[in-house]
């Protein structure tokens, strides 16, 4: 009984982490029409930067949450710079843009190895969340339960931004019809930079939030990127609801697949992506066909 309960809670937790990772991916994909193959790298860089802030090596002491927000801001700036100075040059050539993100992901992986070395870095669970939550016979790590809360808060914040603010309206317009958005006076190129930065920042934040569970190590980027892809393809690009539902579904498939069908775990993880691409290319909740 506790097996099922633990796995269910963990599926939702993992889904929450995946949502933080893939919400930005989905917005970028929806607006710019390209899969950002550096998204896994952003996640990893966020975790590395956060662990450095946390270690106090920079001369000032931060707590976990400040470190997470600082690294999110830093990764957001890096993402915006990358959009402005690399991807903008290739505007209108989605293939070239995808290839550039692929190249940059190779470079980032090596730069991280140079900066932080090959040894894994372990990040302490933030204080106050190291305990357990007991429900009947089952024991849940408090931090994992907290991740669900963080994901919900971020989801609501993003939703409000998209639905209630001027920026959100512009993003939605850009996702629906970039040409038309441009015609009515929205500076779509600047929007691209903002959204790319925002998405990168979210990925960086997710990296730090995930770090106490996953730790930080070379190759973390390659482990996370395919998961973000699966979630977004499943949920549909440019759709917040799609990312949310997609994340939870993949969280369940990932956890139960490994426990119950270990040999086919990755097969059933990527299968929904193929089925969706073939049967319903716009994803479960996406408005647009890729």
């Amino acid at each position: 009984m506790s097996f099922w309960l633990l796995l269910t809670v963990n599926s939702i937790t993992f889904g929450g982490l995946l949502f933080l990772l893939s919400a930005g991916f989905s917005l970028i994909f929806g607006l710019m029409r390209i899969p950002n193959l550096t998204h896994g790298s952003m996640f990893m860089v966020g975790a590395y930067l956060g662990s450095t802030f946390l270690s106090g090596e920079l001369g000032f002491i931060t707590n976990f949450w400040t470190a997470a927000i600082l690294s999110a801001i830093e990764v957001a700036v890096l993402g915006a710079l990358m959009e402005r100075f690399l991807l903008r040059r290739l505007a209108g050539q989605p293939l070239a843009q995808v290839l550039v993100t692929l190249g940059v992901s190779l470079m980032v992986a090596d730069l991280c190895l140079m900066g932080w070395g090959g040894d894994p870095i372990s990040v302490e669970t933030p204080s106050g969340l190291g305990g357990f939550l007991r429900v009947g016979p089952a024991v849940f790590p408090l931090y994992r339960v907290a991740i669900i809360g963080i994901a919900v808060v971020i989801a609501i914040a993003l939703w409000l931004t998209l639905e209630r603010t001027r920026l959100g309206a512009m993003i939605r317009a850009g996702v629906d019809d970039p040409q038309m958005a441009r015609v009515v006076g929205i500076r779509v190129s600047r929007l691209f930079t903002i959204v790319f930065g925002l998405g990168a920042g979210l990925a960086g934040f997710a990296g730090m939030i995930g770090a106490p569970i996953l730790s930080v190590y070379p190759g973390l980027d390659q482990d996370m990127l395919p998961l973000a892809l699966v979630v977004v393809i499943l949920g549909g690009t440019g759709s917040l609801l799609g990312s949310f539902v997609g994340s939870i579904v993949i969280g369940f498939i990932y956890n139960f697949g490994q426990a119950l069908l270990p040999e086919l775990a990755y097969f059933i993880l990527f299968l929904p992506m193929v089925i969706v691409l073939v049967v319903r290319p716009q994803g479960l909740f996406g408005g647009q066909v890729l």
Partner: peptide, 12 residues
Amino acid sequence: STGISFIMITLA
């Protein structure tokens, strides 16, 4: 599919 979608399917 073709284009970006083709990249995604082959990747998957």
